[in-house]
Structures are given as C-alpha cells and as structure tokens.
Design a protein around this nucleic acid. Structure first.
Length: 467
RNA sequence: GGACCCGUAGCGAAAUUGGUCAUCGCGCCUCCCUGUCACGGAGGAGACUGCCGGUUCGAGUCCGGUCGGGUCCGCCA
C-alpha cells in the first residue's frame, strides 16, 4: 500500500489507507487510545482498541510523543457528537490495524504546541529541527516559500530571467566588512563572499541580459542587530533602459499583487504607494524610513512608501571624508561635472528605497554609465586612478564595450516577511538563523579548523593575549 | 569598540527587608479509566538556583569576576 498524506484522508472515507508521521499527542483511556498523528500536511486522529486487536493495542501503549510511526487503517466518519471542528480532519478518524515504529524520540526539550515566544531562544536555536515543528515556524517557512515563488513567477511573467552569480568573489572597499575565504592554491590570497551581487548584475546589463533577477544570498560581517543576520536573502533585480519610474512601478505592482494574493487579510494603507523625497521624509518624520501607518496597533495594516532623491554623497564624520551614500555607481541627478566635484552636499542621486511600516525593505538606484560622470564621482570620493582601476577596473572596462543605461533594486526578503508575518525578529522567518552574536548554536559555528587545514591555507592563528 | 537587560528541575514562572525541608503550572514516569481531542483521576521522580570568588552566623536574594543568551549605540557603500 502506498502512503498518503493526512490531508487526503478527508476524501477516503471507508477506504484502507497507509499514513506516516510524528505522534503529536496521545490520549489513553484504558480501553481506547487516541493518537494525533502529524505529517507535513496536517493532523489526524488514530484510534486503537483492544477489542479490535489486543496485540496492536499493547504495542500502541508503548508509543510516546514525537515517535515516528506508520499506520495502516480504515478511514471512518466519526460518530455523531464526536467530531472536532478544531482540526481539518475532525470529521474523520483512522481505525488502525497496523502500527510500525520507524523511530523513537526522547522527550523534546521544550513544548511545541505553543507559539514559542516564551521559550529561551537559545534552547530553540540549539534544537531548531524540533522548533520548526512548531506550527508558527512551519507556517512562516511556508509563507516564505510562497512569497519567493510568487516573486519568481511575477518576474518571469514580466520577461525577467534568473541568473546565478558567484558566491566566491572579490573583496570590495567601502561598505560593510567582507567575509573572506582563504585560497589554498594561491598563498596569501582571499576570495570574499558577496555583500550583494551588485557588480555582477551590472555586468549582466552590459552583457545584454536586460532583465535580471536572482534570489541572492548576501553576506556582511558586521556586528549583529535583531533585524540583521550575517547572511540574508535579497530579491535582486536589475534592468536595462528603464527609467526610475518604471522600476518603482514594477516594485509596487509586485508588492501589491503579492499581498493581495498571499496575505488577503492585510490592508495596504495607501495605493499607489506615497512617494516622499529624502528631504521631505527627514523634515517631516526625522528619518529616511518613515512609519506612515495610521494605527500602529493594527497588526494588519501595511503602509508602504517610496523614499526618493537621496543625496549622492554624505560626509563621514568618523573617517573625516566624503563617501557615497549608496555606492559610487549610483547615478547623480546632475550631469554637471563641476557641480559633482564642487557641490557635493547638494548633489542628489537617482536612488530610492521602499519602506514598509518604518522598515527599509528595499533599496536601489539607477547606475552611472557615462565615463566622465563616473570619473567625477570617483574623484569626489578621493579615489586615486590606481585604486579605481584595482577595485572597479573590471566593471569600468566592461563599460567600454557598450553599456546600456541601467538600474535596479534589491529587496530584503527576511525583513519583509518578518513585517508581513508580524514577527518581532527576522530569525523567526529563517529556517536556521544565527544568534545575535553571529553564531550557529546548532552546528556550533564558527569553529576551529585543523592544523592541517591551516597549513594548506598558508594561515597562522595569532593567539589573543589572554590565551 | 561601547552601554544596558536576563540566567532558579526538560519548559515557563514564584520565593517578604538576606533566615527551616527552594514553591507552583506544564512536561516526564507508574497505576486507574471505552470517545477523548490541551482527556480526566491518583501517586512518583527530577535543581549543587550558569560558573568562580567575596561580604555575612546565614546568600537564589548583596558585591566582584567569568561564561552563555537578548536589546541598543557605533557600524551596516
């Protein structure tokens, strides 16, 4: 007999079926035992009585919660008055005639029939494979899957193609700290993990791909926050020949359609999404990611807005120099070289963010593609010719072979999902998140490597003083 | 790099101003129970109060350190 999913049992009244899953709970009444059996699709009640099969009944008595079992039995309509409207299969139950135990289970380290917020997160993360059995986390992972699928389908339908870009790439200056990966074959040299596929996606524009997207993993070695992880997922988009308005329109339709389709209970406060300039946002709300919700206690209210016209440059007090607010490839709104060089504080950029309930969930820009503008920006940032060549040479070189005007955007999927699912932390929407200290408690990483590995990699560990 | 919060059985909590055998709920184990669905009933086991040190006649409680979590600032083009 072929195993079927629990959700199928509703249509199988009177049939003999085989089910498999985890025993969620056991209710024993002396001469009758009920299991709630859980699989990926749902929960069903299994019934054992000694009058039907003494041996089987004795076997069922030994079973404990979270054991993995296989049941063969007959699907029966429940007697009048014994239905349970609380579960999907509540009108049915399975009268068992075979019970196979695939594996036993220790008592789980914490309850999983609650939403779990009350449990120390350390415990949950150390046993994440148990924690994910919790309906809330399972729901979150399913919602994440559906959102990604929706975005993929949406973009494919708009003529985009998904292209994978390298994860082993090159360390870049500015921006966040890179995670670096030592090279075994090239002593003293390192790859870096991408902070975003930024340069590759621009190269794809030069390559004529025109409409690119990728569900991209990004890596940043910065100190943690509740809404950050050292690795996170970005829905990364880049298009050739589009203007800012077209990009924002795509972004808006994507989000509005997604919410309507997957989260119909949510209310989008204002459609079309309000557009604020950076200046307006700062003056009116004192932040570049304003929370424009009417009622912040309403869990179903979603208030999107675009923030546009960011400054091109910002003065970095710490470093006592001018830096790019976004990145040096962002296209300034002016093409006046003198103004770019001499009037840094007033130059605006074709840069835009999408903000949701006070959280920045996407950021993007049109890119510079004219050599003289790029040169002026780099000069304003104080790069020497050699530095430019070393850090960005490959991209600038590609521009010599026919570069289209282009621009794009990247969505922080984790943060978006956390907001939409009313979760307090992005860890709740990631299958295997790291702690606030960038550690993986379950795998125990980061961890030591062997002396042999270090030797192969041409690395020596300098011990800290206290060691 | 800096600041703050938390740590008591498997889980969640309680414990007057420092004062007997560290309490409760859930879970776990045993027994009873034929219709429960968070089943019910009876009984039982389980904690060097994260760790080290100090103050005190006496520390879960006060102090210092340390370890492990969490939040925030810096940082995050």
């Amino acid at each position: 007999m072929e195993r079927i999913l629990i959700k199928e049992t509703g249509r199988r009244s009177g049939e003999k079926v085989k089910l498999a899953g985890w025993v969620r709970s056991i209710r024993s009444h002396g001469k009758i035992i009920f299991f709630d059996l859980r699989d990926a699709s749902g929960v069903a009640q299994i019934v054992f009585t000694p009058k039907d099969n003494e041996e089987l009944y004795e076997k069922a008595k030994e079973v404990r919660p979270e054991w993995v079992v296989e049941i063969e039995g007959e699907v029966k309509e429940r007697p009048e008055g014994m239905q349970n409207q609380g579960i999907e299969t509540g009108n049915m139950e399975i009268k068992a005639f075979v019970l196979n135990v695939f594996s036993q289970a220790k008592t789980i380290p914490f309850p999983i029939d609650t939403d779990g917020y009350e449990i120390n997160e350390k415990n949950r993360l150390e046993h994440r494979y148990v924690d994910i059995r919790r309906p809330r986390i399972k729901r979150n992972l399913e919602a994440r899957h559906k959102a990604i699928k929706f975005m993929r389908d949406f973009l494919v339908n708009e003529g985009f193609i998904e292209v994978e870009t390298p994860v082993l790439t090159k360390s870049t200056p500015e921006g966040a700290r890179d995670f670096v990966v030592p090279s075994r074959n090239y002593s003293g040299k390192f790859y870096a993990l991408p902070q975003s596929p930024q340069q590759y996606k621009q190269l794809l524009m030069v390559a004529g791909v025109e409409k690119y997207f990728q569900v991209a993993r990004c890596f940043r070695d910065e100190d943690p926050r509740g809404d950050r992880q050292p690795e996170f997922t970005q829905m990364d988009i880049e298009v050739a020949f589009w203007e800012q308005k077209e990009i924002l329109d795509l972004v808006e339709r994507l989000h509005a359609d997604l919410i309507k389709e997957l989260f119909p209970g949510k209310k989008i406060m204002k459609s079309p999404f309000p557009v604020l300039t950076y200046k307006e946002a700062m003056e009116k709300y004192g932040t570049d990611r304003p929370d424009i919700r009417k009622d912040k206690n309403d869990a179903d209210e979603l208030a999107f807005c675009f923030v546009v016209d960011f400054p091109m440059f910002e003065y970095k007090e710490g470093d006592k120099r001018w830096g790019a607010m976004h990145n040096p490839f962002t296209r300034p709104q002016t093409e006046d070289i003198e103004e770019i060089k001499n009037n840094k504080e007033s130059v605006l950029a074709h840069q835009y963010d999408l903000v949701l309930n006070g959280q920045e969930i996407a950021g993007g820009a049109l890119r510079s593609y004219k050599p003289d503008i790029l040169e002026a920006v780099f000069e304003s940032l104080g790069y020497s010719k050699e530095e430019i060549k070393k850090q960005f040479g490959h991209l600038l070189q590609s521009f010599e072979y026919g570069v289209p005007p282009h621009g794009g955007i990247g969505f922080g999927l984790d943060r978006f999902l956390a907001v939409v699912l009313n979760e307090p932390s992005i860890r709740e929407v990631i299958a295997f998140p790291k702690t606030g200290d960038n550690k993986d408690l379950m795998m125990d990483s980061p961890s030591d490597v062997s002396k042999e590995q270090l030797k192969e990699l041409h690395l020596k560990i300098e011990k800290n003083e206290k060691e």
